[in-house]
Simulated scan of single mutants.
Amino acid sequence: MTAMFPNPATHGGFYVAIAVGVVALLIARRIPILRTIVALAGWMLIAALLVVALGRQPMIDPYVDRIMAFLKIDGQTVVGKEVRVRMAPDGHFWIRVRMGGVERRMLVDSGATFTALSAATAAAAGITPEGGVPVLINTANGTIRAESGRVPELRFGTIVARDLSVVISPAFGDVSVLGMNFLSRLQSWRVEGQTLILVPHHPQAPPTAA
Protein backbone atom coordinates (compact mmCIF):
# COMPACT_ATOMS: atom_id res chain seq x y z
CA MET A 1 0.00 0.00 0.00
CA THR A 2 1.39 3.43 -0.93
CA ALA A 3 2.01 5.82 1.96
CA MET A 4 -0.23 8.87 1.98
CA PHE A 5 2.35 11.12 3.67
CA PRO A 6 6.08 11.75 3.05
CA ASN A 7 8.48 9.39 4.79
CA PRO A 8 9.91 11.20 7.87
CA ALA A 9 13.29 9.63 7.20
CA THR A 10 13.61 11.29 3.81
CA HIS A 11 11.33 14.32 4.21
CA GLY A 12 12.18 15.52 7.71
CA GLY A 13 12.26 19.13 6.55
CA PHE A 14 8.66 18.84 5.40
CA TYR A 15 7.44 17.96 8.89
CA VAL A 16 9.69 20.56 10.53
CA ALA A 17 8.20 23.26 8.29
CA ILE A 18 4.67 22.17 9.20
CA ALA A 19 5.51 22.14 12.90
CA VAL A 20 7.08 25.60 12.75
CA GLY A 21 4.08 26.93 10.86
CA VAL A 22 1.60 25.51 13.37
CA VAL A 23 3.55 26.88 16.33
CA ALA A 24 3.81 30.31 14.66
CA LEU A 25 0.06 30.39 14.05
CA LEU A 26 -0.71 29.40 17.66
CA ILE A 27 1.63 32.07 19.03
CA ALA A 28 0.29 34.67 16.60
CA ARG A 29 -3.26 34.08 17.84
CA ARG A 30 -2.21 35.08 21.36
CA ILE A 31 -0.03 38.08 20.43
CA PRO A 32 -1.88 40.78 18.44
CA ILE A 33 1.22 42.24 16.78
CA LEU A 34 2.35 38.82 15.54
CA ARG A 35 -1.14 38.13 14.26
CA THR A 36 -0.96 41.34 12.25
CA ILE A 37 2.48 40.46 10.88
CA VAL A 38 1.34 36.97 9.83
CA ALA A 39 -1.75 38.43 8.12
CA LEU A 40 0.33 41.01 6.22
CA ALA A 41 2.82 38.35 5.14
CA GLY A 42 -0.04 36.22 3.83
CA TRP A 43 -1.50 39.07 1.77
CA MET A 44 1.95 39.93 0.40
CA LEU A 45 2.40 36.33 -0.71
CA ILE A 46 -1.01 36.31 -2.41
CA ALA A 47 -0.20 39.62 -4.17
CA ALA A 48 3.16 38.28 -5.38
CA LEU A 49 1.55 35.13 -6.77
CA LEU A 50 -1.11 37.22 -8.51
CA VAL A 51 1.49 39.45 -10.18
CA VAL A 52 3.42 36.42 -11.44
CA ALA A 53 0.27 34.73 -12.73
CA LEU A 54 -1.03 37.81 -14.53
CA GLY A 55 2.37 38.70 -15.94
CA ARG A 56 3.22 35.27 -17.35
CA GLN A 57 -0.01 33.85 -18.69
CA PRO A 58 -2.53 36.54 -19.57
CA MET A 59 -3.41 34.75 -22.79
CA ILE A 60 -3.74 31.18 -21.64
CA ASP A 61 -6.96 31.15 -19.70
CA PRO A 62 -10.02 33.13 -20.85
CA TYR A 63 -11.28 33.08 -17.25
CA VAL A 64 -8.22 35.12 -16.24
CA ASP A 65 -9.17 37.66 -18.92
CA ARG A 66 -12.67 38.01 -17.47
CA ILE A 67 -11.38 38.39 -13.92
CA MET A 68 -8.87 41.06 -14.97
CA ALA A 69 -11.53 42.98 -16.91
CA PHE A 70 -14.01 42.75 -14.01
CA LEU A 71 -11.41 44.00 -11.52
CA LYS A 72 -10.27 46.67 -14.01
CA ILE A 73 -6.60 45.71 -13.61
CA ASP A 74 -5.87 44.97 -17.26
CA GLY A 75 -4.89 48.62 -17.89
CA GLN A 76 -7.09 49.17 -20.96
CA THR A 77 -9.19 52.35 -20.88
CA VAL A 78 -10.98 54.73 -23.25
CA VAL A 79 -10.17 58.44 -22.96
CA GLY A 80 -12.17 60.50 -25.44
CA LYS A 81 -11.63 58.82 -28.81
CA GLU A 82 -8.35 57.23 -27.73
CA VAL A 83 -7.69 53.79 -26.31
CA ARG A 84 -4.93 53.78 -23.71
CA VAL A 85 -3.19 50.58 -22.67
CA ARG A 86 -0.88 50.40 -19.68
CA MET A 87 2.27 48.27 -19.95
CA ALA A 88 1.82 44.84 -18.36
CA PRO A 89 4.19 43.46 -15.69
CA ASP A 90 5.94 41.43 -18.42
CA GLY A 91 6.96 44.67 -20.20
CA HIS A 92 4.53 44.24 -23.13
CA PHE A 93 1.27 45.83 -24.19
CA TRP A 94 -1.74 43.48 -24.27
CA ILE A 95 -5.12 44.47 -25.70
CA ARG A 96 -8.42 42.77 -24.95
CA VAL A 97 -10.22 42.46 -28.29
CA ARG A 98 -13.52 41.00 -29.44
CA MET A 99 -13.92 39.07 -32.69
CA GLY A 100 -16.29 36.37 -33.85
CA GLY A 101 -18.29 36.66 -30.65
CA VAL A 102 -15.33 35.81 -28.36
CA GLU A 103 -13.00 37.97 -26.31
CA ARG A 104 -9.25 37.37 -26.30
CA ARG A 105 -6.07 39.18 -25.30
CA MET A 106 -3.57 39.99 -28.03
CA LEU A 107 0.01 41.21 -27.85
CA VAL A 108 0.79 44.47 -29.67
CA ASP A 109 3.97 43.97 -31.71
CA SER A 110 5.08 46.74 -34.07
CA GLY A 111 7.86 44.43 -35.26
CA ALA A 112 5.35 41.97 -36.69
CA THR A 113 4.27 42.62 -40.28
CA PHE A 114 1.03 40.65 -39.98
CA THR A 115 -1.60 40.16 -37.32
CA ALA A 116 -1.23 36.56 -36.18
CA LEU A 117 -3.75 34.27 -34.49
CA SER A 118 -3.06 31.11 -32.57
CA ALA A 119 -4.92 28.07 -33.88
CA ALA A 120 -7.05 27.96 -30.72
CA THR A 121 -8.07 31.63 -30.97
CA ALA A 122 -8.89 31.32 -34.67
CA ALA A 123 -11.05 28.25 -34.01
CA ALA A 124 -12.89 29.91 -31.12
CA ALA A 125 -13.63 33.00 -33.26
CA GLY A 126 -14.78 30.88 -36.22
CA ILE A 127 -11.95 32.07 -38.48
CA THR A 128 -10.78 29.41 -40.91
CA PRO A 129 -7.75 29.43 -43.23
CA GLU A 130 -8.51 30.56 -46.78
CA GLY A 131 -6.33 27.89 -48.36
CA GLY A 132 -3.84 28.55 -51.08
CA VAL A 133 -0.09 28.87 -50.73
CA PRO A 134 1.11 28.80 -47.09
CA VAL A 135 2.92 31.84 -45.74
CA LEU A 136 6.48 31.43 -44.45
CA ILE A 137 7.23 33.75 -41.51
CA ASN A 138 10.67 34.43 -40.07
CA THR A 139 10.65 34.52 -36.28
CA ALA A 140 13.26 34.55 -33.53
CA ASN A 141 12.81 30.78 -33.31
CA GLY A 142 13.23 30.20 -37.05
CA THR A 143 10.92 30.07 -40.05
CA ILE A 144 7.37 28.82 -39.43
CA ARG A 145 4.56 27.94 -41.79
CA ALA A 146 1.20 29.70 -41.46
CA GLU A 147 -2.11 29.86 -43.31
CA SER A 148 -3.81 33.05 -44.47
CA GLY A 149 -7.17 34.07 -43.03
CA ARG A 150 -9.42 37.08 -42.63
CA VAL A 151 -11.21 38.56 -39.61
CA PRO A 152 -14.55 40.16 -40.57
CA GLU A 153 -14.48 42.47 -37.56
CA LEU A 154 -12.07 43.06 -34.68
CA ARG A 155 -13.19 45.51 -32.02
CA PHE A 156 -12.01 47.06 -28.77
CA GLY A 157 -12.75 50.38 -27.09
CA THR A 158 -13.42 53.01 -29.77
CA ILE A 159 -11.55 51.03 -32.45
CA VAL A 160 -13.01 48.71 -35.08
CA ALA A 161 -10.99 46.99 -37.82
CA ARG A 162 -12.96 45.20 -40.55
CA ASP A 163 -11.81 42.67 -43.12
CA LEU A 164 -8.43 42.34 -41.43
CA SER A 165 -5.91 39.93 -42.97
CA VAL A 166 -4.31 37.52 -40.51
CA VAL A 167 -2.02 34.52 -40.46
CA ILE A 168 -2.92 31.40 -38.46
CA SER A 169 -0.59 28.71 -37.16
CA PRO A 170 -0.32 26.23 -34.27
CA ALA A 171 3.33 27.30 -34.07
CA PHE A 172 2.22 30.55 -32.40
CA GLY A 173 1.32 28.56 -29.29
CA ASP A 174 -1.13 30.42 -27.04
CA VAL A 175 -0.11 33.92 -28.18
CA SER A 176 -1.95 36.02 -30.76
CA VAL A 177 -0.41 39.26 -32.06
CA LEU A 178 -1.66 42.58 -33.43
CA GLY A 179 0.88 43.51 -36.10
CA MET A 180 1.63 46.47 -38.35
CA ASN A 181 -1.13 45.67 -40.83
CA PHE A 182 -3.52 46.56 -37.99
CA LEU A 183 -1.56 49.49 -36.52
CA SER A 184 -1.19 51.11 -39.96
CA ARG A 185 -4.98 51.46 -40.15
CA LEU A 186 -5.05 53.83 -37.18
CA GLN A 187 -4.83 57.59 -37.39
CA SER A 188 -1.88 57.36 -35.02
CA TRP A 189 -0.32 55.31 -32.26
CA ARG A 190 2.45 56.13 -29.83
CA VAL A 191 4.00 55.15 -26.53
CA GLU A 192 4.22 57.72 -23.74
CA GLY A 193 6.10 56.43 -20.74
CA GLN A 194 4.47 53.09 -19.96
CA THR A 195 1.25 53.78 -21.85
CA LEU A 196 0.36 52.83 -25.43
CA ILE A 197 -2.06 55.33 -27.01
CA LEU A 198 -4.10 54.27 -30.05
CA VAL A 199 -6.13 56.81 -32.03
CA PRO A 200 -8.61 55.62 -34.72
CA HIS A 201 -9.61 57.53 -37.83
CA HIS A 202 -13.28 56.98 -37.13
CA PRO A 203 -13.89 56.30 -33.43
CA GLN A 204 -16.84 54.07 -32.60
CA ALA A 205 -18.94 54.09 -29.44
CA PRO A 206 -17.38 51.66 -26.93
CA PRO A 207 -19.51 48.60 -26.17
CA THR A 208 -21.57 48.89 -23.02
CA ALA A 209 -20.79 46.58 -20.13
CA ALA A 210 -22.97 43.49 -19.99
Results as ranks from 00 to 15, higher is better:
residue 134 P to G: 08
residue 165 S to Y: 02
residue 84 R to T: 01
residue 102 V to N: 13
residue 140 A to T: 12
residue 66 R to I: 05
residue 60 I to A: 11
residue 160 V to W: 00
residue 209 A to T: 13
residue 174 D to A: 15
residue 103 E to L: 05
residue 72 K to D: 06
residue 51 V to P: 03
residue 80 G to R: 06
residue 24 A to N: 06
residue 39 A to P: 04
residue 90 D to W: 01
residue 32 P to N: 08
residue 157 G to D: 02
residue 126 G to M: 10
residue 53 A to S: 11
residue 137 I to T: 13
residue 168 I to S: 01
residue 144 I to T: 04
residue 210 A to P: 15
residue 186 L to I: 10
residue 40 L to K: 15
residue 2 T to C: 03
residue 132 G to A: 06
residue 90 D to C: 03
residue 23 V to G: 00
residue 147 E to C: 07
residue 40 L to F: 13
residue 16 V to G: 02
residue 200 P to C: 12
residue 16 V to H: 01
residue 26 L to D: 00
residue 98 R to C: 13
residue 145 R to F: 06
residue 163 D to M: 09
residue 173 G to M: 13
residue 17 A to M: 10
residue 153 E to L: 14
residue 118 S to N: 11
residue 63 Y to T: 09
residue 3 A to F: 12
residue 171 A to C: 01
residue 7 N to I: 07
residue 42 G to E: 09
residue 101 G to R: 11
residue 123 A to I: 05
residue 63 Y to H: 10
residue 35 R to M: 11
residue 120 A to Y: 00
residue 76 Q to V: 04
residue 167 V to C: 01
residue 73 I to P: 00
residue 92 H to G: 06
residue 137 I to N: 12
residue 179 G to S: 07
residue 30 R to Y: 03
residue 1 M to Y: 05
residue 193 G to E: 03
residue 152 P to A: 11
residue 209 A to I: 09
residue 55 G to L: 04
residue 187 Q to D: 12
residue 170 P to Y: 03
residue 84 R to N: 00
residue 192 E to T: 07
residue 46 I to P: 10
residue 52 V to N: 04
residue 78 V to P: 06
residue 18 I to K: 04
residue 188 S to D: 14
residue 70 F to C: 05
residue 182 F to S: 04
residue 162 R to C: 10
residue 40 L to R: 15
residue 2 T to S: 14
residue 106 M to S: 04
residue 177 V to I: 15
residue 181 N to Y: 10
residue 75 G to S: 03
residue 53 A to R: 12
residue 101 G to A: 08
residue 9 A to I: 12
residue 31 I to M: 09
